[in-house]
């Protein structure tokens, strides 16, 4: 099995071979490439199994730190998360190199990317804000996505040529990052409502003592929505430029397009209402959760049960 490695890497590699490695060794070029591919395949298989385990341990550490105040967990949680992220990143890169296409061609490849985006976005939040205690609630979603991905992911070497476009990469990555952002927004909205309820009803347990304050939760949830909305806008704009050119059976009334437009409008109206009417606190947080639920429905149900040109798997 000779594996196709992206041209740029091949060029750099062969340059290295001509410049540094003596003539006699050059014959090994193909040989090395062959072994390299095999090795990479084994490593990818191993990481596929390892990632859910890694995410589980990370979530476990965050839960221990949040609920049990464990000192060991507090010390290990963030290094564990960063380690998992590095391995996940390497995994995605290796898949891209080995299978010669970015891992966006099946729902389960996409789930892995969503999982990575959620965990990475949380890592940024943890380093930039004081909300260090919320990891458990967010990373558990990353764990679930990655577990589904690892269970059902397939190794596809052959994909539709249309899925190798550069614009597509841009389109999909902004959409997925947007999805990660609204997921995080919904989690913070959920935490907001929990804390809101706890304070209102004078129950001062773990939720009361450990979560960031209401104002901060609301701010982070809304910031995530704004980021998600911008990313969705980019994804839709790129899609509208590229889709009509790429597909013969393109239609503006494709279920997925209609769904997406609806979601986009919903977030837009919500943000507008916040700005103009001054919706605050509980109301806007409930809206965020509803909007996320609808988006998730659109991502899964529409993909599985409706057919249209915007369906690849």
């Amino acid at each position: 099995m000779v594996v196709a490695i992206p041209r740029s890497i091949r060029v750099v590699a062969s340059l290295l071979f001509t410049l540094i490695i003596p003539q006699g060794l050059r014959k090994f070029n193909n040989c090395i490439e062959f072994n390299f591919g095999n090795l990479m395949k084994t490593v990818i298989d191993l990481i596929t199994i390892a990632l859910p385990v890694l995410y589980f341990s990370t979530v476990w550490a965050y839960a221990k730190a949040f609920f049990k105040d464990s000192i060991v967990a507090k010390r290990t949680k963030t290094p564990l998360l960063l380690g998992t992220l590095v391995i996940h990143m390497a995994y995605l890169l290796m898949r891209t190199i080995l299978f010669n296409h970015p891992p966006i061609t099946t729902m389960f490849e996409i789930m892995s990317i969503v999982s990575f985006s959620i965990a990475a976005a949380y890592a940024v939040i943890e380093f930039r804000t004081k909300a260090k205690n919320t990891g458990y609630f967010i990373l558990i979603l990353a764990f679930l996505f990655q577990t589904f991905s690892s269970l059902f992911i397939e190794d596809l070497f052959e994909v539709k040529p249309i899925l190798r476009s550069n614009l597509l990469g841009f389109h999909v990555s902004s959409a997925l990052l947007g999805l990660a952002a609204i997921t995080i927004s919904a989690v913070y909205a959920f935490l907001y409502l929990m804390l809101y309820h706890h304070i209102k009803s004078s129950s001062f347990g773990v939720i009361y003592t450990k979560l960031p304050n209401l104002e901060m939760l609301e701010r982070m949830s809304i910031l995530s929505i704004v980021i998600g909305f911008i990313l969705f806008t980019i994804a839709i704009a790129v899609g509208l430029i590229w889709l009509p050119r790429a597909f013969e059976n393109f239609s503006y009334f494709d279920p997925k397009l209609v769904g997406t437009a609806f979601i986009w409008a919903m977030y837009g109206v919500g943000l507008g209402a916040k700005k103009t009417i001054g919706w605050r606190g509980r109301k806007i947080m409930i809206l965020s959760i509803i909007a996320f639920a609808v988006s998730f429905f659109s991502l899964t149900i529409v993909n599985v049960y409706f057919s249209g040109f915007h369906k690849f798997y």
């Binding site: 804390l195 304070i199 009361y208 960031p212 304050n213 209401l214 104002e215 901060m216 701010r219």
Partner: peptide, 9 residues
């Protein structure tokens, strides 16, 4: 302390 659980600054 309660005020701090509601407001951040």
């Amino acid at each position: 302390e309660l005020a701090h659980r509601i407001f951040s600054d």
